[in-house]
Design a protein around this nucleic acid. Sequence first.
DNA 1: CCAAAAGTGTTGGTCTTACACCCATGC
DNA 2: GCATGGGTGTAAGACCAACACTTTTGG
Lengths: 229, 229
Amino acid sequence: MASEPPEHRFAGVQQHPLVAVDVALFALTGGALYCLLVQVKDGSFAGKWAFPGGLVRADESLDDAAERELFELTGVRGGYIEQLYTFGRPERDPARRVVSASYLALVANLNLSVNAGARYGAVKWFAADKLPPLAYDHDQVGRMALQRLRAKLQYTNIVYSLLPKEFTLGELQEVYETILHRRLDRRNFRKKILALGLLRQLSKKRLGTHRPAALYAFKQKRPMVIEMV
Amino acid sequence: MASEPPEHRFAGVQQHPLVAVDVALFALTGGALYCLLVQVKDGSFAGKWAFPGGLVRADESLDDAAERELFELTGVRGGYIEQLYTFGRPERDPARRVVSASYLALVANLNLSVNAGARYGAVKWFAADKLPPLAYDHDQVGRMALQRLRAKLQYTNIVYSLLPKEFTLGELQEVYETILHRRLDRRNFRKKILALGLLRQLSKKRLGTHRPAALYAFKQKRPMVIEMV
DNA sequence: CCAAAAGTGTTGGTCTTACACCCATGC
DNA sequence: GCATGGGTGTAAGACCAACACTTTTGG
């Protein structure tokens, strides 16, 4: 057997696909779930909406790239972000082969000062259950992101990333009802959530239109797997 | 604002990472879970064990590449395979930047005629809970694969891919006990599994060393999410 | 005083767990 | 006849789902 060059691991010819990340960012407001989309400027998908994203740079990891893309567009750093799935069909971008790792990101409020900058035609929040047809294979990204979000809401504590520091139990419950598309019994919900011991009751109250509600905060804002609902 | 070239989506300079897939293949025998590793031939990890894998070709998707790699090494096609996670730290392979999508694959029996061919120094099954230190970031791949396998065994029916066409309830239970590292009550297990209605009892019996056991088969060999244990 | 959301326990049903003995076969 | 895994039911406890009235505030 002939000796092999040290590069044999890379021996297969490859028209080096580009490597990109795409970020599906979600936020809640007014009892509805929203998703941030950008308008593609050029190419065969010009004018279509898509998840924001871009190429991974030479010196950064996929995670770094996703966080950077999110930061550049929204100014948000340090929120919840996790890798979702990697898409690599050769024809997913007709212009050039691009393999793209998609990410799921969550923020507590959608009043971000997003600006399209030079890269995108526009940036806009869309109701997550009524996304327009998307560019590339981003319809699939959107479906997977929602599915992952729903699943993880139930068996992890990541809901903390969708809420402000202080919130009422009613607001917490509303997050679940909105995303899971089902009504929860208030008494059972409170019992269950409080029994988990993840919340700390604050002495303050949320003064509002009616009876003041006790405010709570998460003791820990760190992903944990735990049966929430 | 200056007009942009149509390639603006690829404007970030990128020293085109290579795109690869790695496959963590598992199989059961004799009440233990095994995992197929190959020995790296060259480079700074020469001699180390790793999951088999290789570059994605120009005309194939990531899934295709993973299935091809698995087939080339083992002759197995059409078993269970799913994408696990994509690793992309710039320094994960010191020789060259490689972004690698890892896959989890399952086969029913480990008596495969694997041959190292020219690419690998050796190919060998290792007990899944005692893997040697692996090359690249494959330790992490191994941990994630096991974790995913354990999780999916519980909330999907993929156990079908680890069993032959016909099996006894005792063998099915053994699969769960082996992978989940816990003993299950035989009566409760049978009750639960049969109540799910996924199995079809065959008229045949497994004749063996002692009392013959009824043979069962899965009605459907297709991934479904369902609470199994 | 009215509207609106907050807060609070109990009960019945379902699901889960624990547990022990007889059976059919090969040797 | 004995060793080995196959096959079976029941009872107690844990968990989950359903359900209605009172409280507190703002207007």
